[in-house]
């Protein structure tokens, strides 16, 4: 029963936290249309505009955001600068982070979908796959090792950046051990999971220690998502530099909190310079 309570609690924190987090972002206005343009704007007919990298329609911007969320478009641009005598810089394409991050996220997503087999009958999606499991571990190892091996990354990494990695490593390794080596009674797990899903929780029977490690670490991970940098999962869709179309001159973007400017008016200005303007022959509003 305690096990089920912990799982419920983690899930509740996750749901409530995510709602809180997303609402907190969504209710803050986007005061200015600050699209970041990475390609040619739409202007003259003879010039080809970049509909995806510099979208001028909301649909284009949605595609841009989707590409960012699904394929990590911006990371794909990554390069590494090297300073050489001359002075000279060269910028080498650096795709390892893109590849490693994509590997990790895709495998994690696959495994997560695969867990649905414990909740639905019959199991439809995402069969367990040893390549995916290996990919997940490799991705995790990559994300961890680059933080400890690259001096620059080590310096900019905070202690709190290791926490999600540690939790993920615990969840993934305990899961993989159960799946491939220390077989756990899948039917028992499924009974437990279905109990949770149907709000008739039962205590898991006949599962080993690894199962508890797996479940508790996963609970901790899920519960921290809204409160840590893991919120990037939702945040990427909110980023105004990516999800806004670049059409601010074609269509006015309204800022809900803006007050009219305290202008130094033309009349005040002319009052100060009238005599000199008259001498210079400039037109005046008042003589």
């Amino acid at each position: 029963m305690v096990t089920a309570a912990i799982a419920y609690l983690a899930f509740a924190i996750f749901v409530a936290g995510t709602v809180w987090r997303v609402v907190a972002w969504a209710r803050v206005p986007v005061p200015f249309p600050i699209a970041l343009t990475c390609g040619q704007q739409k202007s003259l007919d003879g010039i080809r505009a970049a509909w995806l990298e510099n979208p001028w329609t909301p649909a284009g911007a949605a595609c841009r955001t989707a590409l960012e969320a699904l394929l990590f478009r911006s990371l794909f641009r990554n390069s590494r600068a090297q300073f050489l005598p001359g002075p000279r810089f060269i910028y080498r394409p650096a795709l390892s982070l893109w590849a490693g991050a994509l590997l990790f996220h895709v495998c994690l997503f696959w495994v997560w979908i695969g867990h649905l087999r414990f909740f639905v009958d019959p199991a439809l999606l995402g069969p367990a796959n040893r390549f995916v499991d290996a990919g997940l571990l490799a991705g995790l190892a990559f994300l961890f090792l680059r933080r400890v091996l690259d001096p620059r990354l080590r310096y900019l990494t905070l202690l709190s950046d290791y926490l999600p990695l540690a939790l993920l490593a615990t969840v993934a390794s305990s899961g993989i051990l159960m799946r491939w080596w220390f077989h756990t009674d899948a039917a028992a797990v499924k009974r437990f999971a279905l109990g949770l899903a149907t709000f008739h929780p039962i205590a898991p029977v006949g599962v080993g220690l690894l199962f508890y490690v797996h479940l508790f670490a996963a609970s901790a991970l899920v519960a921290t998502i809204p409160f840590t940098k893991l919120a990037h999962i939702a945040g990427v869709f909110f980023s105004p530099t990516r999800n806004l179309p670049n059409r601010s001159r074609a269509r006015r973007h309204v800022n809900p909190w803006l007050a009219p400017a305290q202008v130094h008016t033309y009349a005040e200005w002319e009052d100060e310079f009238r005599d000199r303007m008259r001498v210079a022959g400039l037109p005046l509003e008042r003589q």
Partner: peptide, 23 residues
């Protein structure tokens, strides 16, 4: 934080991946 979604979001979601570091 109440006026600029950009500011609020950018405070929350950086994962310190370091892609921007040498840019």
């Amino acid at each position: 934080l109440e006026k600029y979604r950009s500011f609020r979001l950018f405070m929350d979601i950086c994962v310190r991946c370091g892609a921007c570091a040498d840019k």
